[in-house]
């Protein structure tokens, strides 16, 4: 007898899993980005299902509304040329299949053998930290006598974000085009031929 939770879980899981498979299989980047979008929404749904509302909202705002938009922008700005074919041959697919299959298999094996018992039904109302406790923890409220708050990680990631901002802005700055009479093109470097064993002594 399937309960409501089970059904919800199955729907969300199918959504997420299916769209992630679609991400892998889609050839065009824009489509992959869209399927990623669906996957992220699915994951966010799962967060809500688990009761972490704040986290689900954060996922939607940051990941979907920030990171994914960034990815789409990147896809559009770096379009491959019309004649370029960027695909992986059969060897790549075999390797990828082997890797992912074995990885999945082993992960499941390890996880299921770790033998942690868990209680399926948890009282949602009591003791589930919501936004308030999370916020207070981030601001340094001690959680237990031996456990200070999470102020330091909070500050660290703030600084980290600042650094990333500056770094990304610098890296992706618009470069001055060299002024040249004949065409004024950006210096192009020819794509290096696939020389896996270059020996340039």
């Amino acid at each position: 007898m399937m309960s409501f939770e089970t059904v919800m879980f199955v729907i969300l899981a199918t959504l997420t899993g299916g769209s992630s498979v679609a991400v892998v299989l889609s050839r065009q980047m824009v489509r992959a980005a869209v399927w990623l979008l669906i996957t992220l929404i699915g994951v966010s749904g799962l967060y809500f299902y688990l009761g972490a509302e704040f986290l689900g909202a954060t996922q939607l705002i940051v990941y979907v509304g920030g990171t994914l938009v960034l990815v789409v922008f990147g896809v559009m700005l770096t379009e491959p040329g019309k004649t370029e074919r960027v695909t992986v041959g059969p060897t790549g697919w075999c390797l990828a299949g082997f890797l992912s299959a074995s990885m999945f298999f082993l992960l499941v094996l390890v996880m299921l053998n770790s033998g942690k018992s868990s209680s399926p039904a948890v009282d949602k109302a009591t003791e589930w930290p919501g936004v308030g406790p999370i916020g207070l923890a981030f601001l340094g409220l001690p959680q237990s006598p031996n456990q200070p708050g999470y102020l330091l990680p909070f500050e660290l990631i703030s600084v980290h974000l600042l650094v990333v901002l500056i770094g990304a802005a610098y890296l992706a700055r618009a470069k001055r085009k060299p002024a040249s009479e004949a065409g004024g093109t950006v210096v192009r470097v020819e794509p290096v031929p696939d020389a896996g064993e270059g020996e340039s002594l």
Partner: peptide, 11 residues
């Protein structure tokens, strides 16, 4: 999801 991600990286 993890193995799909790995597959995506590899392909």
């Amino acid at each position: 999801l993890f193995s799909c991600g790995i597959a995506c990286i590899a392909t």
